[in-house]
Design a protein around this nucleic acid. Structure first.
Ligand SMILES: [Mn+2]
Ligand SMILES: [Mn+2]
Ligand SMILES: [Zn+2]
Ligand SMILES: [Zn+2]
Lengths: 133, 133
DNA sequence: ATTGCAAATGCGAATCAATCTCATTTAAGA
DNA sequence: TCTTAAATGAGATTGATTCGCATTTGCAAT
């Protein structure tokens, strides 16, 4: 349940936070910008400030509840942190985002970090693609 | 020589462009933001507008002379496009950027795109790492 | 149920990278 | 040297995100 997630993260259970979670849960293209979330809320007659949406999303990110991405450039998009890590592919023509999982690539990244005396904490991989002729 | 690069790209050989190229050439941490480049120029008594630096860097990117990255978040950094493609590793503690090349990862990315009916045009891979204990 | 108070919120102002506008300068071919 | 389209500089502007602060609210202890 969503309330538990908030409490576990040491965050008070407030209406804005619950509503933001709800929007992320029902998101169809499940990568939403802060403005996207804000618009959905306004649309649903939930009085909430844009600044609060930004604050809440950032807190959720720190709590591991959501993941932030910077696909193209300029603005961030968020998605609920699912149990399964995945990377993204952006169709340059349509802008559509495709998710994929590849264990071999994940493994290689750890090895590369190790070869340089580091441990991998996180990574961001985005493939920019075009429909094959 | 640098003039040739500009001409090949269909760009006039102007003083601002030459100077920007020069700064990128001598850049020690060779990932510079537009502001970084601008400051270097001002520092070297080259009268150039910040807007011009942004314009020139974008043109260079389109011409394949420089590569743009969005490591952390928020702003872009540029580096001269070397003959050899490479990816990056960011030390979360020091902020230092390490470059690496891994053919296996490059190969896998092409395969993944293909598996989804696409062809890989470009990609961005950044590893966020911490010194191993 | 009431109270106390730090945490959270809303709203407008402020920031900051990046882009745009437009009058002026300049590269480069004729 | 002349001509003209491209390039530039300075400042205004945009757009996403953050700040400041007065007000509200969750919630734990009465
Ligand atoms: Mn995703
Ligand atoms: Mn590099
Ligand atoms: Zn991954
Ligand atoms: Zn690569």
């Amino acid at each position: 349940m969503t309330e538990a997630e908030l409490k576990d993260a040491g965050l008070k259970v407030t209406l804005p936070r619950l509503k933001v979670l709800q929007v992320l849960d029902n998101a169809d293209p499940h990568h939403l910008s802060a403005e996207d979330v804000y618009r959905e809320l306004v649309n649903a007659d939930v009085t909430v400030g844009l600044a609060t949406v930004y604050r809440v999303l950032t807190q959720f990110e720190q709590a591991g509840i959501v993941t932030r991405h910077n696909f193209d450039d300029g603005h961030s998009v968020f998605e609920l942190a699912t149990e399964e890590h995945h990377d993204h592919m952006v169709d340059l023509d349509s802008g559509k985002v495709i998710e994929f999982v590849n264990e071999a690539i994940e493994q290689l990244q750890h090895e590369i970090a190790e070869q340089h005396g580091y441990e991998l904490v996180n990574h961001e991989l985005v493939l920019f693609v075009r429909k094959a002729k």
